[in-house]
């Protein structure tokens, strides 16, 4: 069986966890990978817990959901409380510290995704894409070019530039954290 990379993106309804999952899955296809994206959310369009799961592999993907995450991005405290502890040994937990204060591990990577989004674009709504940029820079699970192309094609109409700016901020933040860790 080829190696599966399992990513979970979680937040509150309206934060764009599912869109982030779609963008990541789309980028994986552009890199020639196999991918499955699933989601779980409540019946309401806003509020309530919302999560996207993305499984990336070079081979067939049978079971489509996450078994044990390699990467988790948490954009709310509730999401972190629920999923933060379910990470694989050596996996990566990214937290939006604007929304998450308590974490199950000291090894989580924290960044003010919402503030970064606001400072760079004036819009907090693109915090999810800042997170994707960070995740890409920190893991290399998809290429930067594929991620950019996915955002350009799949961002809601008229918001491509805004989202690309957010993605660039995320890349830079990820690079900074990597350098510091070294």
């Amino acid at each position: 069986m080829a190696r599966r990379y399992e990513v979970r993106l979680a937040g509150t309804g309206g934060q764009g966890a599912i869109l982030a999952g779609i963008l990541l899955a789309d980028a994986a296809i552009r890199d020639g990978k196999n991918v499955v994206q699933t989601q779980s959310y409540g019946p309401e369009a806003r509020g309530g817990a919302s999560r996207a799961e993305v499984v990336i592999s070079d081979g067939d993907i049978h079971y489509p959901k996450v078994l044990q995450s390699d990467i988790i991005l948490c954009m709310s405290q509730e999401a972190c409380d629920r999923y933060g502890g379910q990470i694989r040994e050596g996996g990566l937990l990214i937290l939006d510290q604007d929304h998450v204060s308590r974490a199950p591990t000291t090894r989580a990577v924290r960044a003010p995704l919402t503030s970064l989004a606001r400072q760079a674009t004036g819009r907090e709504i693109v915090a999810n894409v800042v997170g994707l940029g960070m995740l890409t820079a920190l893991t290399g699970i998809v290429s930067r070019e594929a991620m950019e192309a996915a955002v350009r094609d799949r961002a809601p109409k008229g918001t491509a530039d805004l989202n690309l700016k957010a993605l660039a901020v995320g890349f830079a933040e990820g690079e900074r954290i990597r350098r510091e860790a070294r």
């Binding site: 899955a25 994986a28 196999n34 991918v35 993907i61 489509p64 959901k65």
Partner: peptide, 9 residues
Amino acid sequence: EVIGHMRER
């Protein structure tokens, strides 16, 4: 629901 909502390559 899984098959209907799932996105896949």
